[in-house]
């Protein structure tokens, strides 16, 4: 396996794919901020942003422009290098996660076979976990280097929350892996296409995973690192201009990616439910485009649920958050894992 020999077309294909996915992540994140405000307005019986462009559609552009042109302030007492590294790390880790997600069915036309996935590595979903676990550093470094007690408290909260919720998330995931027998994202999707979506076999596992995903993205009801009435503003208090924008944006990209991961793990990825679309005889391009659109529909639904929860459920208290993670979710996830393991063993014999 000479995977490191340079093949120029391979590199062009992958670079194009990566650029598309990053562009898409930014675009979706941009319009999730718009959707957030519109849905909030809808839930609170208001109008929401409606000045910039038709229906306020240019509002994210206006916000972005504002952030770019704001004055850049780096506190004198802060650690300059780490202060800049913090938001950069948050953004990088948010973007890398998309590499292993299969974004659609492969484009197969004769001998050409273009997978809509940057890397289908053997470790698949574990890579996502690795990057998510590194994502804590963006928050921690930013919070510490601001040299502000509130920022530090928020960063410590965020980090401990993310480390705690990674455990039940991993345990819920093991149940899925027991059913598929592979860590590859493509194998997880094709298993669901053959045997039905995992949500029907793993409802408890999905709920645990979803709660943990909310906590990992620092979304309400688990947005303790950004609890403004306790911490002034949160770990990004000292940040201004686009550095603040990066932190806020990274959160929305994380939401987008975790929606994609949930759709892939539990909702069949790019599979269309109840029908076998591969027998329709569609042209390869249309087939790939349709599978991508289906995945996107699922992702948008999850994004809506994220926003819906934010404007419905109030924030947890910090001890409640820790109790939920360690005393309720972990035992539940362990029971779920053991039950799945026993059932898999029983059914396979």
């Amino acid at each position: 396996m000479n995977m490191l020999a340079i093949d120029i077309w391979f590199i062009i294909e992958k670079v194009a794919l990566i650029a598309t996915i990053i562009g898409l992540s930014f675009f979706i994140a941009m319009y999730t901020t718009y959707a957030e405000r519109k849905v909030a307005a809808w839930l609170q019986d208001r109008r929401g942003p409606n000045r910039a462009g038709p229906f306020g559609l240019f509002q994210p552009l206006a916000d972005g422009g504002k952030l770019f042109f704001k004055e850049e302030i780096i506190p004198l007492t802060s650690n300059r290098f780490l202060f800049i590294l913090g938001p950069a790390l948050a953004m990088i880790t948010a973007l890398i996660t998309s590499t292993v997600i299969p974004w659609g069915a492969s484009y197969v036309d004769g001998t050409t076979n273009i997978a809509l996935q940057v890397a289908d590595v053997d470790m698949g979903i574990l890579v996502v976990f690795g990057i998510v676990s590194v994502g804590v550093y963006g928050i921690m470094i930013g919070g510490w280097s601001s040299n502000n007690k509130f920022s530090l408290m928020a960063a410590i909260r965020g980090a401990s929350q993310m480390v705690s919720y990674e455990l039940p998330m991993g345990l819920a995931l093991i149940a899925v892996l027991l059913m598929t027998g592979s860590l590859k994202m493509s194998a997880i999707v094709s298993h669901q296409i053959e045997h039905g979506w995992h949500i029907f076999y793993q409802p408890l596992g999905f709920i645990i995973f979803f709660v943990c995903a909310l906590a990992e993205c620092n979304r309400t009801p688990f947005d303790l690192p950004e609890a403004e009435n306790e911490l002034n503003f949160g770990y990004h208090q000292e940040y201004s201009s686009m550095k603040l924008g990066f932190y806020l944006f990274a959160e929305y990209i994380n939401m987008f990616i975790s929606s994609a991961v949930m759709a892939t793990l539990y909702f069949g990825g790019y599979d269309i439910p109840f029908v076998n679309e591969s027998t329709w005889g569609l042209s390869p391009l249309l087939f790939s485009a349709m599978s991508f659109a289906v995945l996107m529909a699922k992702v948008l639904f999850f994004l809506f649920v994220f926003i819906w929860i934010r404007w419905t459920i109030p924030r947890f208290r910090y001890d409640q958050l820790m109790n939920l993670g360690w005393k309720k979710l972990i035992p539940l996830a362990l029971v779920n894992m053991l039950l799945t393991a026993a059932l898999t063993l029983w059914l396979n014999n």
């Binding site: 690795g130 676990s133 410590i156």
Partner: peptide, 21 residues
């Protein structure tokens, strides 16, 4: 690959976070 990813998850992602804490 497994060792590589687990090294990142366990050492870089969990143990070093506690150190940093």
């Amino acid at each position: 690959q497994f060792l590589a990813v687990v090294n990142i998850i366990v050492y870089a992602g969990a143990i070093m976070v506690l150190f940093l804490f």
